[in-house]
Simulated assay, not measured.
Amino acid sequence: MKSFVRTAGLAMVALAAVSLSGAAAWAGMGQPSEWQIGLQGAATPVMESIHSFNTFLLTIISAIVLFVTVLLSIVIVRFNEKANPVPSKTTHNTLIEVVWTVVPVMILVAIAIPSFRLLHLELHTPEPDMTVKVTGHQWYWSYEYPDNGGFSFDSLMVGEKDLKPGQPRLLTVDNEVIVPVNKTVRVYVTSADVIHSFAVPSFGVKIDAIPGRLNESWFKATKEGVYYGQCSELCGRDHAFMPLAVRVVSQQDFDAWVGQAKQKYSDVPVIAPAQLADAGGVR
């Protein structure tokens, strides 16, 4: 019986170890990866905290499963009809009743403390270095840089036939969001039509874009690279085709891009109402 319990315990420990290591080993950075079973790699302090909290919860869950499995194994072996023909008639045990009340409460408190700490980290925006305004449309995103000249641009998904080698399908966009590395970016999110959701898994950012409301989030990317996300709200027919891409670059490259973006996105000719009427645009 002892060998059976020992074997069951070792099996559960091995399962927990595989689960804990697999979450880190089989998860990509910035985009989904093949055979991924865990969270995407962390590129911000918030996502690093989410990773730590996830590992903490997985450890607790694995320990509970292991404990319950050992108890069930003992019950199966020691208290079946063959091994124990005369069953116990015990109906009350004060110690056990106190333990099964106090221990779950202690576990919940242990989970609540880091949970509230993480929630505060996500919701409390530190002093930002720059701001990006995000607007969801059916079915694409628009971005505005109010701290860098106020230019704005639309970002649409690149079709599969137009993809270049190395560009991920259903995630590549024509105009990426560009931000500098190690800078706190405040994100204002709203919608022009229906409810969307701005989400970048490697940043630990997911916030709804609601018409008539301005929601706020933030991130501080600590690694250069391209990080993909998608609309995470069922927003209509082309919901699956409005990805977003954030490229994190050095401050020097960001400054150079801003200079180019001001010319590219700000030199849009303003069409007067009279011209619209002549063109048939106003009726």
Rank of each mutant, 00 (worst) to 15 (best):
M1A: 10
V5D: 01
L10H: 14
A11F: 12
M12I: 01
V13H: 07
L15M: 14
A16P: 04
A16C: 09
V18R: 07
S19N: 14
S21K: 07
G22I: 10
A23V: 12
A23H: 12
A25N: 11
Q31T: 08
S33C: 10
I37F: 06
G41H: 06
G41A: 13
A43G: 10
T44A: 11
P45L: 05
V46C: 01
M47V: 04
S52A: 15
F56N: 11
I60K: 08
A63R: 02
V65D: 02
S73Q: 02
V75P: 00
I76L: 10
R78E: 06
P85V: 02
V86G: 00
K89E: 08
T94G: 00
L95N: 02
I96Y: 09
I96E: 08
E97K: 06
E97Y: 02
V98H: 05
V99K: 01
V99Q: 03
W100G: 00
V102S: 06
M106L: 15
M106G: 12
L108C: 11
L108A: 13
A110F: 12
A112S: 11
P114W: 06
F116Y: 04
L118R: 06
E122T: 08
P126D: 07
P126T: 08
E127A: 13
D129F: 01
M130D: 03
V132P: 03
T135D: 05
G136R: 07
W141I: 07
Y143F: 15
P146V: 04
D147A: 03
D147E: 03
F151N: 11
S152A: 14
S155T: 11
L156D: 11
E160T: 14
P165E: 05
P165T: 02
Q167E: 15
Q167D: 05
P168V: 10
R169N: 13
T172F: 00
V173M: 05
D174K: 10
V177I: 15
I178L: 12
K183P: 00
V185F: 02
R186E: 13
R186A: 09
V187A: 05
V187G: 02
Y188P: 00
T190C: 06
T190G: 04
S191V: 08
S191L: 05
D193V: 04
I195V: 15
F198V: 12
A199D: 13
V200D: 10
P201C: 10
S202Y: 11
G212R: 04
R213E: 14
R213W: 01
W218A: 09
E224T: 14
V226I: 15
Y227R: 07
Y227T: 11
Y227I: 09
G229V: 10
L234Q: 15
L234I: 13
M242R: 05
A245P: 01
V248K: 03
S250N: 06
Q251Y: 02
Q252P: 00
D253Y: 03
W257T: 09
W257P: 05
G259D: 07
A261V: 04
Q263G: 15
D267C: 01
V268L: 13
I271Q: 12
A277M: 03
V282N: 12
R283F: 13
